[in-house]
Amino acid sequence: MLLIECPWCGPRDEIEFAYGGEAHIARPADPSKLSDAEWAEFLFFRSNPKGAHRERWVHAAGCRRWFNVERDTVSYRISRVYTGACEPVGEGQ
């Protein structure tokens, strides 16, 4: 069971959280302008890296806030917990 540091509530067991998939995939501002391929890219394609992965979690059984976590998909070590949709993405992995 992961120990996740909620930015508002502190470290809590994973059981209190729900997973939200890869982070920093913004919903397109105007989906109607997107080709089917571009829309499919947004809907279905995720990076699935071996190593550092930025992902979304929500403290579902707590403060109900969504936030981002950078977690190593091999060791499961969490290197960073941060908030804000505007966080610069960059590859950095």
């Binding site: 729900a18 939200g20 913004a26 919903r27 979304r56 929500v58 579902a60 109900r64 806030r65 969504w66 949709a85």
Partner: peptide, 17 residues
């Protein structure tokens, strides 16, 4: 109910703050 609330919060907090 809980899944709907999580999803609505998701949109409010991350897509349409």
């Amino acid at each position: 109910a809980a899944a709907v609330l999580d999803r609505l919060e998701d949109y409010l907090q991350t897509e349409w703050p």
